[in-house]
Simulated assay, not measured.
Amino acid sequence: MLEASARAVLIAPVIAATLLLGACGLPSQPAAGTGGPSVTGAAAAPAAAPGEAVAAGSPATGDFTAVDPSGLPAGALFRNPANGRDEVIIDNIGRTALLIGDSQSEPEASWPRRALAGLGYDVFFCGKGGTGFVASNGTTGNYVDALQRGDWHLPYGFPPLVVIEGGGNDAKQGASDEQIAANAESLITTLKQRYPGAKLAMVGTLGKGAGNGGGRRAEVDALLGTVAAEHGISFVSVGDWLTRYGLENQLADAVHMNDDGHRTLGALLGGRLSALGLGPR
């Protein structure tokens, strides 16, 4: 009797309607220069086995045969049997850009999201303000830890483009070059394995540049460029963009843009990504 009951609990798939707001967001379909819809919360539910649907926050358990996820709604978490991770079902994965980032990317109308939307992508965001390659905000781990322990979840399927943005919080929290490079390399390796065939790009650390008081932010931007080159992926240096393009008057605070700044930087980044051949196929 106990064996039959346990089998019934494990086999029955559990559908999650939405993700938690602090985790990966649902892909948005904004017009160029606009943000996507907000994501509401959902309570955690029992775990499912690999290949089953699972609610946000559920631990990984079980070892069952995969089921077809094609009937699951957008926003459901699905335990990918290939890697044992909970991943998010989204629509139109073939036109989606995965964006991993910090508070520069988190707002729905942020300059990285505007750039990708302007190229014609739906944008799926993973990350959180205060985090980075090494930096944690206290509740969400750095990019590597957050992925490994499920603070946020990657999309299921194969997006054509993956963009990693960050480094500012690593500079602020005093991470060393060795720590930043090691974690950046770990994340790049993981993403290449998970999404073979996807184009990868990195966007550096927004700042004023080494010659204009950019300090550690400029150093981290240059370091990330070196890491990207070593791994053969595209890199957009933004370490001096605030002064190069005269954008200091479009800052909302010391490091974040106001609406005009997001719009201006979004157009600049979109043009750079397009020139690198990173638009949709």
Rank of each mutant, 00 (worst) to 15 (best):
D122W: 00
Y143I: 13
R149P: 14
V123A: 01
P159L: 07
P280Q: 10
W152A: 12
A48F: 08
A32E: 07
A175H: 10
K172D: 15
A76H: 08
A6K: 12
T65A: 15
N83W: 03
D253C: 09
F124V: 12
G167T: 08
G71L: 05
N258V: 02
I164W: 06
L223T: 02
S234P: 11
P107D: 00
L200G: 07
T18F: 15
G130W: 01
T65G: 13
V9P: 08
D102V: 04
T243R: 02
I164E: 06
L269V: 02
A60S: 15
I180F: 12
A252N: 10
H231V: 06
E108A: 05
G211A: 15
G132W: 12
S274A: 11
M257A: 08
Q104V: 08
D170A: 01
A135M: 08
D122A: 04
L10P: 02
V88Q: 15
A181P: 13
Y245N: 03
G118F: 03
A201Y: 00
G239S: 02
G62F: 08
D260W: 02
G174P: 01
A42E: 14
V67Y: 07
G211T: 14
I15H: 14
T205I: 09
S136Y: 09
A182F: 07
S58N: 14
A267H: 06
P50C: 02
G130K: 04
M1K: 09
R113C: 00
A49L: 09
A275F: 01
L206M: 10
A12D: 08
G261Y: 02
W111H: 03
G36E: 04
A181N: 12
F64N: 09
G62A: 10
E165N: 07
P73H: 04
L147Q: 13
A31L: 11
P159I: 03
A218L: 09
V67M: 11
I93M: 04
L72S: 10
R79W: 09
T190F: 07
S58C: 15
